[in-house]
Amino acid sequence: MRRIHILCVEDEPEVLEAVVRDLAPFEEVFPIEATATADEARRVVRDVILPRGELGLAICDHILPGEDGVSFMVHLHAQEATRATRKVLLTAQAGLQATIVAVNQAALSHYLAKPWNPDELVAVTRRLLTDYVLETQTNLYPFLSLLEADRLTERIRSGPLPGDE
């Protein structure tokens, strides 16, 4: 089964752990991949995530060693396979300029300031993954228990039903 992944990019190991821990409830359906740099993230997307499924959500810090988060997101947005991916900037400092680039060129979906509120992170993740799933998936049932059930229900009820009896 092709699964929808969540990707976290953050260079501070403890912070990365905290993000992954906050998102652990999603892992039942959405496998989480954690990387420390944009370079590693590119490799993981190419070699680990895309061969097994797709990338639904990328949560990136902006200030990273080497390539910064916004530029990585622009890269994701430029690739066909990750264009629909929802992108979240989770950062303590990203200048106005970087944020503008992120919004315009990477279709940034959300901006979360550090330190984040775990409830907000979970809510944003739930909302964005619901958006993604509604946009890209036909079988919505696997997501009902984790994502925004109301919106998925609405779509299931208004959409076509499978096969005959």
């Binding site: 409830p25 049932y141 009902l144 228990s145 984790l146 059930a149 998925l152 229900t153 299931i156 009820r157 039903l161 499978p162 096969g163 009896e165």
Partner: peptide, 19 residues
Amino acid sequence: MSNTATTAMMMTVVLPILA
């Protein structure tokens, strides 16, 4: 109703609470 439509509706009722 059709069994399929019923299942689809009931799934949207029960799956969210499974979490």
